[in-house]
């Protein structure tokens, strides 16, 4: 079954987590990254130009 060893994670997140504290806020680095990525994705979706459609308007 050695051939499936490639299925093992390349960077397994198996160590104890790291945590961030600001006053009452206490969040794992992993969750923090996910939430920051969500905000970044949202802002990027608003700001980045959407390709294609804008200059090809057709009346219907």
């Amino acid at each position: 079954m050695a051939w499936i060893s490639f299925l093992a994670a390349l960077i397994p997140l198996n160590g104890y987590g790291h945590y961030l504290h600001w006053g009452v806020i206490n969040i794992s680095v992993a969750n923090f990254i996910v939430i920051v990525l969500m905000v970044v994705t949202f802002v990027a979706a608003l700001l980045l130009p959407f390709p294609g459609r804008s200059r090809r308007k057709e009346s219907k």
């Binding site: 160590g15 790291h18 794992s28 969750n31 996910v34």
Partner: peptide, 8 residues
């Protein structure tokens, strides 16, 4: 909201 180890 935490997962075991360092997972989200």
């Amino acid at each position: 909201m935490n997962e075991t180890n360092s997972y989200p």
